[in-house]
Amino acid sequence: MLLRTVERFLSENNIPPTRFGREAVRDPRLVFDLRQGREPGDRVRRRVEHFMNTYRRSRGQ
């Protein structure tokens, strides 16, 4: 579920996966690891969701 949300966010905002991971949780491999089946913990999930929400608000979406 998180991966689907992140993939949609990347597509809608034209953000490279490494930049997203670095800015969201300081892990440039995050998206690649999610694609390989990584299951993030609650803390990482919250940070990712917070980043996407903050990014959208800053863009007026």
Results as ranks from 00 to 15, higher is better:
Arg59Met: 10
Met52Tyr: 11
Ala24Tyr: 02
Ile15Gln: 05
Phe32Glu: 14
Met1Thr: 14
Asn13Val: 00
Leu2Trp: 02
Arg46Tyr: 11
Gly37Pro: 04
Arg35Thr: 10
Leu30Ser: 01
Leu30Thr: 05
Glu39Arg: 10
Leu34Thr: 01
Leu2Val: 07
Arg22Val: 08
Arg38Phe: 01
Val44Ala: 13
Phe9Val: 11
Val48Thr: 06
Met1Gly: 13
Val25Thr: 13
Val6Tyr: 04
Gly21Cys: 06
Phe9Glu: 13
Glu12Pro: 00
Met1His: 14
Gly60Lys: 14
Phe9Asp: 09
Arg59Thr: 03
Val48Phe: 03
Thr18Cys: 07
Met52Phe: 05
Arg43Asn: 14
Arg57Asp: 08
Val44Gly: 08
Gly21Asn: 04
Arg8Lys: 09
Arg35Ser: 09
Leu2Asn: 07
Val48Gly: 12
Glu23Ile: 07
Gly60Thr: 09
Leu30Cys: 01
Pro17Tyr: 12
Phe32Val: 08
Met52Asn: 08
Arg45Leu: 15
Arg4Gln: 13
Gly37Tyr: 07
Asn13Gly: 02
Thr18Val: 10
Glu39Asn: 02
Arg56His: 10
Arg22Gly: 06
Tyr55Asn: 01
Gln36Thr: 07
Arg43Ala: 15
Thr5Lys: 14
Pro16Gln: 13
Arg59Gly: 00
Phe51Arg: 00
Thr5Tyr: 12
Gly41Tyr: 03
Leu3Tyr: 12
Ser58Gln: 14
Val6Ile: 12
Leu10His: 04
Glu39Gln: 07
Val6Cys: 07
Glu12Trp: 06
Val25Gln: 11
Tyr55Met: 05
Arg19Asp: 04
Asn13Ile: 05
Arg43Tyr: 12
Pro17Thr: 02
Asp33Asn: 15
Leu34Arg: 01
Phe51Glu: 08
Arg46Phe: 11
Arg19Glu: 14
Gln36Ile: 03
Pro17Gln: 08
Arg26Cys: 08
Gln61Cys: 06
Arg38Asn: 05
Met52Pro: 10
Glu12Met: 03
Arg22Tyr: 12
Glu7Phe: 03
Arg4Glu: 15
Arg4Phe: 08
Asn13Thr: 11
Arg8Tyr: 09
Met1Glu: 13
Asp27His: 06
Pro28Ala: 02
Ile15Met: 14
Asp42Asn: 07
Arg59Trp: 00
Leu34Gln: 02
Ser58Met: 14
Arg57Val: 02
Val44His: 10
Thr54Arg: 10
Val31Leu: 03
Arg43Ser: 15
Pro17Trp: 03
